[in-house]
Amino acid sequence: MCLAVPAKVVAIDGAFAKVDVEGNIREAGIRLVPDVKVGDYVLVHAGFVVEIVDPQAAEETLAIFREALKAEEGAI
């Protein structure tokens, strides 16, 4: 039930954003994330944007994955 889907903001119109969820355009309320901008990646839950995805933090987690991969390959 706490599932939130990733989406990209394609337009903002007042209290709502148009978001692209895997190619489908949906409306999502932005009352809880007022500083969202067109082009942001966001999480959408129950008709509202919950949070903006931080691309830099995403990249840092991916770097941890790459490191783990390298370390384990080295270990074999």
Binding site: V38, G39, E59, E73
Partner: peptide
């Protein structure tokens, strides 16, 4: 936080099998 996109490939890496084995 700028508009720079975490690309789709990045999303896939979160479930990459080789990474899973390493972890």
């Amino acid at each position: 936080m700028n508009g720079q996109a975490p690309n789709v490939a990045a999303t896939q890496a979160f479930s990459d099998r080789a990474v899973a084995q390493a972890l």
